[in-house]
Each structure stands twice: as C-alpha cells, then as structure tokens.
Design a binder for these strands. Structure first.
Length: 571
RNA sequence: GAUUCAGUAGCUCAGCUGGUAGAGCAUUUCCCUUUUAAGGAAGUGGUCCUGGGUUCGAGUCCCAGCUGGAUCACCA
C-alpha cells in the first residue's frame, strides 16, 4: 500500500521523536490512579480536595491555544479533557517537550500517559491539569474524525466494509459499537448464570467431528494429517450433548461456535454461536416454560426492562409467550385447516394461496412453505410455534396425540427464528429408521440430509432418559437485545471476502532493473512495492523529481537521481 | 447464485446534457495562556475501484471485472 501524506508525516514524527531520545513504544508499565469515569466522579464528589492523578488514554481531540493546550483522552470507558501549559510542562528554558513534541510530533490517535491534578475549567468541565506526560504509543494511521454535537453525530465512520474489516477503528470512534459488544457479553453471562443456578453443567464437546450431525446443513470439511481422515467443523453439538445425557448427566449445556457452509446474509454468518441445553426427564412443554423464564430475565438484566424496543416495534417479554400449533397458525392467517389433509390436498391449498411450490416437496416442506409465506411475518411478539410435521424433524419424538406431528417448537420473535426445541427422540430403533431415511436423501443427492452416526445410535441403545433439548441462536438474540438488524453488527469480526494484498517484490528485482540498492527501501516506502507498480510511471522526469523531493524532505544521505537514471529503470 | 445500488482527498460527501477535480473536518506553516460543533490566516493533499471501449475530450456514456450494501434464492 502506498503511504499517503499523513502517514508519511507520522513516520517522520516517529523518527524525530527517536532523534530526541524519546522511545515512542516504551516497555515500562504506566500505572494509573483510575479510569476517566472514576477520576471525574472522584473529583466531582469533593472538588475542594487536591486530587493528584495519573491517567492514560488515546488522544481524540486536540485544541492548541499557543502556550496552553487542551486535548481529550479516551480510555475504555469514556473520555476526559486534559489541560497543558507550556511553562508547567517545560519548567526550564528548554521548551521542546511542549513546542515540538506535544504540538508537532503528537497526533490524534497517539496514546499518552499523563500525571497532574484534577480541576474544573472556566466552562465547568472536569479536567486533568497536566504536569508531565509520557508517550506510550505513536499511531501511524490517522483516525476517522466523527463529530458529536448535542448527541447528534456528523461525519460518522459509516462505511460498512471499512467498519467490519477494521473493527478496531470502528470500536475507537463509534461508542455505540462498544456498547453492543458489552451487551453481547452480558447476554451470555446472564444466560450462563441462569443455567448454572438451575444446576446444569456447562460442558465442551468436539468442534472437529468425523461425522457432522445434529442438524441439516452443509459442513466445512478439513483433513487430519496424522489420522489421514476427513474431519468436519461441527454444524451442531446436539448428538454429543445427548451422549452425555446417556452417560448420566441430567442437565448439560454448551455455548457452541457452529459452522455451516451456506450463504451469508443479514441473519447468517458461516460461523455463529448457539447455546444448546439438554435436560433429562423433561419435555418440550417444560422447555417452553424454562425458555420463557430465561429470556424474560435476560432481557431485564441486559436492557433493564422486560419490554424491548426494536426498530419501530415493541417486543414484550413480560407477558406469557403465545403457544401456537403450526396448523392453528395456518388456519388463523389463511383460513385453511390442514389437519389430516393429504400431501396432494395441501399442495392444492398452497397453489390456491399462491405459495410457490413444486412436485418434489413433501408434506412437511409444503406446510413449512405455507407457514413461511403466509404466517411467519405476523409473529412479532415471542411465540412458540409448535407441533411440526414429522418429516422435517428426524431427531424429535412423535407427538403424544398425533403421530403425524412431532413434539417440537421454534421460538419466533420479530419474524425470526430464535430457538429450536424438541422432546428428544430416545427410541433407538425409531432413530435408526429416521437416520436411514436421511441417508436415502443423501443418496438422492440432497446435501441437506443427515449422516448416519453409528456411535450415537449405540449410545441411544444403552438408553437415554426422556430429554428435552433446545438450541438458542445467540447472535440473533443479541441482535434483538441491541436493536441491530444485521448479524455483522453483533460479531466482532464478521466473515468478509479477503482483501487483495499486493506482495512487495524482493529487493533483487529492483536492483535487477538498475535501481541503486540504497534507493530500494525508500521506493517501497513511497508505495512502489513492486517493479510493475514502478513501471506504471511513464514520465521519468516527473518520477525522478518525486523521488528527489522525497530524498530532500527526508534528508537522505544518498545520491540524487537524474531523469536518465530513472529512464533506464522503466525499460 | 440472481437482481439492484454504490465505490471521488485520511474521514463524511458534492460534482448538471461529457469540457482543466470541489467542500467541511483531518493534515502542514504562522499567530493565540481556560478551549470545547476546533479561534484567526495561508497552504499541501486525488491511479475519481480496476481494465477495456466510444469520443477531439470520460469522474460523468458503454462493456467486463473487483469490493461492499440492499432485496430475492438457499439456510432442520
């Protein structure tokens, strides 16, 4: 990457600092007496006391007023203004530390430590009166400069691509982003506390699996060299947690990063987080109550209220969640009762409703399509959508009242699937048959079919108690709680197509076309990192001037270049 | 994967039917000892995403590509 003017200036400042004997990246610790928030609170509590402080932060604003200066330092929790006076910073005749170092060699984005005392300015802002400062880190790239006036932000750093690729910059200049990720951590902590208080055990299960099971999704595949076998990144941890239930644990959960090799959009990232919970001797009805209780308390802990604003809708966790059998939902929103209807009858109804269907769709898929097209968008408030057709749920117990259905629910909030729960199938013979059906799907080329996991079946044959299990999409829950429309906003580093970077040519390649050795590194510094980039310059006169200008500016002790020299490089 | 919109200075953005590339902030220089939407004055800074094409002339029009966003498809 070619360095721009500001980057070159900062590098120059760096060498000047070193020339002054200042280490721009010192190794010593810099002890502080408090965060920006603490120092301000401490002073404001008893402003009459002389409060000596030590503080470190990143320079975000600088206002130089001749012999006095103000700056704003930012730490993890906020910002604090500092005041510097030339003759206090430099009590002797030597004013370098103020006139040169502070005013010229420091930049917005640099990290400094300051010592001084707290005071209030004439305009009433609690600030640090600095007696001495230490450079802790010189920053070589300029930060974007959003301005905030009366809570309104101007010139905000908004380009999504830049924000996601350079989350570190995003976090520095967009305070809301930091709040989102703090809320994410709070959400997970709140859920973990809830589950631990219930007595369930947090466990870890394999991420590298030789049989990717527990969901229908395309996996990422990798290879283990020593065993010389393919391994898959897990798409779910369901089958492992159930093995633990077989092994005698009665409540286990895991916050699991899962990986699915599918498309990406506002609600899907190739790696995402799911919390899966399995509890023995329970059914899906029990799980509805538990889920409801858990989400209500998480919402309260994270947002301070059981009622949540998301965009322009209000989502109420305080009331009991609706429990809506899928057939009832369809009846409510389309007027058609599908109970007991055959595949052909349902297909005809779908066509009548203008739901796009084709002949390959089975009964389960048809019902799912109708619901998705005609009903799902009505479900804003938390709703347990329950009793799915058996075809779509190969790991779920058949419904106690209707063998065509399963004991399964999905939790829908604001039109989005948040959680998926079953009364887990524990009949090993039934499970084997359902796996075999899935294998047939695979053999037909349906890449969503499930693999047959012999060891899991063997475990079930030893006997798994009746169990209810749930998977909750953590990313989507955090989106909801933080009022974010996109999953990329709740992942620190969402998946992006890799940036293309040009690898610099070796120095040999430059000397081979006649560039003097002492010039090569400087050319690279100026952005001519490959011979091809250099040769894009067609005006040797202009190029030699540019290079000599750089030589002069940096006061380089090397030979100046003639246009003829440069002409030969360009070939 | 399809459609569509976008890509111009470090950041946020203007740029008309094609005619020499603009602003604010940042940055540089000078002045200023309590400022705070950064005080005054003067400057610097651009492969207009890339590559082709049309044209006397392309940031602007056409084609292809790259990257991102949105919508759709896919996603138990």
């Amino acid at each position: 990457m070619a360095l721009n003017e500001q980057q070159l200036q900062r590098r120059e400042s760096l060498t000047k600092l070193r020339a002054l004997g200042i280490d721009p990246y010192p190794p010593e610790e810099f002890p502080i007496t408090g965060t920006s928030k603490q120092l301000k609170a401490q002073f404001d509590e008893s402003p009459e006391e002389h409060l000596e402080v030590s503080f470190a932060g990143r320079i975000m604003v600088r206002r130089i007023q001749g012999k006095a200066s103000f700056a704003v330092l930012q730490d993890e929790v906020g910002r604090i203004q500092i005041y510097l006076n030339r003759d206090e910073i430099c009590p002797t005749e030597d004013k370098t530390y103020y006139n040169d170092v502070f005013k010229k060699l420091l930049d917005i984005g640099d990290i400094i430590g300051v010592k001084g005392h707290m005071f209030k300015t004439q305009t009433g802002e609690t600030s640090i009166h600095v007696k001495s400062y230490t450079i802790l880190c010189k920053s070589l790239n300029p930060l974007p400069m959003p301005k905030e006036v009366d809570g309104k932000t101007f010139d905000a750093f908004t380009d999504p691509e830049a924000r996601y690729r350079m989350r570190y910059v995003d976090l520095l200049v967009n305070p809301k982003v930091k709040q989102t990720f703090i809320a994410r951590t709070k959400t997970i902590r709140s859920m973990r506390n809830f589950l631990e208080n219930k007595g369930y055990l947090e466990v870890e299960t394999p991420i590298l699996q030789s049989i990717p099971g527990g969901a229908a999704a395309r996996p990422f595949i990798t290879h283990h060299n020593a065993l010389d076998i393919p391994l898959y990144l897990r798409i779910a941890n369901e089958l492992y947690l159930k093995r633990l239930i077989v092994g005698g644990f009665e409540g286990v959960f895991e916050f699991a990063k899962d990986f699915r090799n599918e498309g990406m959009d506002k609600t899907h990232n190739p790696e995402f987080t799911q919390m899966e919970l399995y509890v023995a001797y329970k059914d899906y009805k029990w799980m509805m109550n538990t889920t409801e209780e858990m989400l209500r308390s998480i919402c309260l802990e994270v947002t301070g209220s059981e009622v949540l604003r998301f965009g322009d809708v209000e989502i109420d966790f305080s009331k009991p969640f609706e429990r809506l059998p899928i057939f009832e939902g369809i009846k409510r929103y389309t007027g058609h009762d599908l109970t007991g209807k055959s595949e052909d009858e349902v297909r005809a109804i779908a066509k009548e409703l203008h739901v796009p269907v084709d002949e390959t769709m089975g009964l389960g898929k048809l019902i799912d399509e109708i619901f998705g097209e005609k009903c799902e968008h009505h479900l804003i408030q938390p709703t347990f959508l329950m009793d799915y057709p058996v075809e779509m749920s190969p790991l779920t117990k058949k419904h106690r009242d209707n063998p065509a259905l399963t004991e399964r629910f999905e939790l829908i909030i604001n039109k989005k699937e948040m959680a998926n729960c079953y009364s887990e199938l524990n009949d090993p013979i039934d499970q084997r048959e359902r796996f075999e059906d899935q294998v047939k799907l695979l053999e037909r080329g349906d890449d969503e079919g499930m693999f047959l996991d012999q060891d899991f079946l063997r475990a079930l044959e030893y006997g798994m108690p009746p169990t209810s299990g749930i998977g909750i999409g953590i990313d989507r829950l955090v989106m909801l709680l933080t009022n974010n429309e996109s999953i990329q906003e709740v992942l620190f580093f969402p998946q992006m197509r890799p940036e293309k970077v040009t690898q610099p040519d070796s120095n040999d390649k430059f000397t081979a076309i006649g560039v003097p050795e002492e010039w090569v590194d400087h050319l690279k510094e100026m952005g001519f990192i490959t011979v091809n980039i250099l040769r894009k310059e067609d005006n040797a006169g202009k190029l030699s001037q540019t290079l000599n200008g750089y030589r002069k500016k940096k006061k380089l002790e090397i030979k100046a270049l003639s246009p003829q020299d440069v002409e030969t490089w360009l070939g």
